[in-house]
Amino acid sequence: MTISLFMIWLLIGCTLVTWVPRVLPFMFVRNIQLPKVVVKWLSFIPVCILTALVIEGLIIETDDAITIDWQVLLVLIPTLFIALKTKSLSITVIGGVIFMALIRFFT
């Protein structure tokens, strides 16, 4: 059970830089009325960022190029199908993990 001094500074720094972006909007949106165009812009954020996070999971970064993780791409198809069919978070996650385990087991 040890913690180094370097680690303590790291924890303080990283805690601050992850906390401030999360909290700032909650502190300031209370006092201002957001313009209509901003509200509209924000309404597109969920679909955009969720798509981005899925694609990020597909990308393998190497030194000066990127490749597509074909295993993830392959498993993505049945996972998307389960999500569309069941509309259930839990079933999609468990189904996706099982597909991924099977693919890795057989390749």
Binding site: V54, L76, R104
Partner: peptide, 23 residues
């Protein structure tokens, strides 16, 4: 830990959340 496919849980979750969002 990767051989169990558990790391894919995150991507699967974002797929499901995206589909629910489009609903």
């Amino acid at each position: 830990p990767e051989i169990f496919g558990l790391d894919f849980a995150l991507v699967a979750m974002f797929v499901a959340l995206l589909v629910l969002q489009l609903e």
